[in-house]
Each structure stands twice: as C-alpha cells, then as structure tokens.
Simulated scan of single mutants.
Amino acid sequence: MPQSTPPRRPSASRPPRHAGAITDVAGIEVGHDTDARRPTGCTVVLARDGAVAGVDVRGAAPGTRETDLLEPTHLIEKVHAIVLAGGSAWGLDAASGAARRLEEEGVGMPIPGVGRLPLVPAAVLFDLLVGDARIRPDAAAGYRACAAASARRPAEGSVGAGTGATVGKLFGMARAMKGGVGTASVTAGGVTVGALIACNAFGDVVDPQTGRVAAGVRTADGRRLLDARRALLRGMVPAPLLAGANTTIGVVATDAAITKAQAHRLAVAAHDGLARSINPVHTMSDGDTLFTLATGRAASPGMLVLSTLAAEAVARATVRAVRAAQTLVTAEGLRLPCAAEFAP
C-alpha cells in the first residue's frame, strides 16, 4: 500500500545521530563548494598522502574523468582526490581546479624534473533541471572546495555536489523531492570504512532499517509518498524524462591496507548499499558511480568484513543524504520538499 502519512512542516531536517562520517577514516578530508547563484556545487574528498583507489560504474549514463587509470591492471596505484560535482559533463571541469590547488600545495605523484602531478578522478550528476542550467561547477569551484577541505565532519544535505540533487523523478519533476549529500562510517575488526554519497536518484530512497520510503516519488496531489516500486509493479508507466538526468555518485574510504584489485572489488561490493537504499537503482537514466580510497594505515580484516562495512556505510549515507536535505523552491516555482516534511 502507498504510504499515507501526510506531510508536516519541519523547522529543520534531522538526520539520525551517531552515524559517523567519511572523515573518521584517518587521512581523509572533505571540502564543499556551494554556488549561491543556483542550487549546484561540488565536493572534494582528499587523500593528500595518496590512497589506493578503485571505481565501479553501474549506471548506464555516467559522466566521469580518469576512471580508466583505476583499472587494477593499469600503472597508477594511488590518487590524491576524488571530485563529485553537479552540472552534468560541464561539472567535470571542477576536477581541474582541485588538481591546481593540490599542485600549489605540493601534493601529487612526483615526476622527476617536472614537479608533482595530482591525480584527481571525478564523477558528475545531472542537476540542470533545477534553476539556471548555465550556472554549473567550474575549475574555480573545484579549487575552492579543495581549499576548504578538512578532517572535520562535513556538512550534509543541500551542500556541495548535493545542492541541486533531486530524487523520485519517475513520474516527472513536479512529483520529485530534494536529494543531497550524506555521510556515514562503520568501525569493526580494527578498521573504519566511511562513505560520502551525493544522491540524485531517479527512484526512491528507502531506509533499509524500516523498509519505508524516506524520500522519492509523491502522489499526484504531492501530499504523500507514492512508493515507486509498488507503483511500477501495479503497471504505472513512468513519465518521459531526459536521458541521464539523474545519478548517485560517491566515495567509500577505508584505513585498511588493500591492493588496487581489492579496491576495485570493494567498490563493486559498496554498490550493494545503493541497492538496499534506492529503488529502482542503476537504471538507464542513472550514471551511478562509486569510488574507493584506501589509506593503508591499518591491517585489513579481509575483504568479507570490508565489503560488509562498505555496503552498510553507503546505505546509511544515502538515507542521510535525503534526511539532511532542505526543501527547495526555485525561481520558476518548482517546489521540491525534503524528507523531513514526510517523516512520521
């Protein structure tokens, strides 16, 4: 049955406490840049000393940079930052700015006789349907996000790469809700695994702990959560939507010492967290991409433990992304309510 809880008026969104953060992983920093001219922005996850990295792209409409160098058989072992940005393919320019800032700080792979080369893979999400699409993250935004990075707990919700994010667009933007950025961490077996997720999903975000939809498609009157999975199973036909106008992207980090091949497998396992918390997920209209970073400061408890922690951290961070988001009303009159308005 569709959920029937009417919306309430929140004073502020209240994500669950004690969920941890990706910055609980030693050696990881996060910085956001949020563009006040339009809801968009970018987020940088730093590993200044370098981290063994992997990636897994599951969505069918990805926008990425330098993911090929993360293939386990390729030369490069470590990267220095991951950039997540709005703005679709234009937002990939933010990675250039982050790389410039890191070069100025002397961070990067040493190139004899040349200097240091920062390695900064990136992924973007599509937020161009919210506000003026001519405004999107650029190199200056990536530079600012990198300059703002710290090991403190990062802000969540409608900031950075999640500023213009939306969820639940199966039946049109008029019935969608606000997405955002969320983070969480889990510690077990002597290691910590953290995740930072920018959720801009085509489908609903579901809390795995309760099985209830936290944010997503609303009913035609906008007052209740429809439950997209049940609606599709009943035969409802999704509305036409610009291809690729979605995407959930994120970074999973751990202090465990793992190989590049294991980092790739950890990214694969981390997508289980998206499958638990987004429905439908990995669609033809999403470019869902997860990166992994391993700082190698702790002994690995084995891939079974790490994979379990990664999927859990991703699921929690995804739910936090919508629960921390704030309601948005655009200049064009589009109203995107936040999850807190529908919380029981």
Rank of each mutant, 00 (worst) to 15 (best):
T192Q: 07
V193A: 03
V193E: 03
V193T: 01
V193L: 05
V193P: 05
G194H: 09
G194D: 09
A195T: 05
A195R: 02
L196A: 10
L196F: 09
A198H: 00
A198L: 00
A198I: 00
A198F: 01
C199H: 01
C199M: 00
C199E: 04
N200Q: 02
N200C: 03
N200F: 01
N200H: 03
A201S: 09
F202W: 14
F202P: 01
G203I: 08
G203V: 07
D204E: 08
D204S: 09
V206N: 07
V206L: 06
V206M: 07
P208Y: 15
P208N: 08
Q209K: 12
Q209F: 07
T210F: 02
T210Q: 06
T210L: 03
G211P: 01
R212T: 04
R212P: 02
V213G: 10
V213H: 05
V213M: 07
A214L: 12
A215C: 02
A215S: 04
A215K: 06
G216C: 10
V217M: 11
V217R: 14
V217H: 14
R218V: 06
R218L: 10
A220V: 08
A220M: 11
D221V: 09
D221C: 10
D221K: 09
D221Y: 13
R223L: 13
R224G: 05
R224W: 12
L225P: 10
L226A: 15
D227K: 08
D227R: 13
D227L: 06
D227G: 09
A228E: 11
A228M: 07
A231L: 11
A231S: 15
A231Q: 13
L233Y: 06
L233E: 10
L233A: 03
R234C: 07
G235I: 10
M236S: 07
M236T: 11
V237Y: 08
V237A: 14
V237S: 13
V237M: 11
P238E: 07
A239M: 07
L241H: 11
L241I: 11
L241K: 15
L242N: 08
A243L: 13
A243F: 09
G244K: 03
G244I: 05
G244N: 09
A245P: 02
A245Q: 01
A245W: 02
N246W: 00
N246F: 01
T247I: 02
T247W: 00
I249Y: 00
G250F: 03
G250M: 03
V251T: 09
V252D: 06
A253H: 04
A253Q: 02
T254F: 12
T254N: 15
D255W: 06
D255L: 05
D255F: 11
D255Y: 14
A256I: 05
A257T: 07
A257P: 01
A257C: 07
I258L: 15
I258Y: 14
I258D: 11
T259Q: 13
K260Q: 14
K260H: 14
A261Y: 08
Q262A: 15
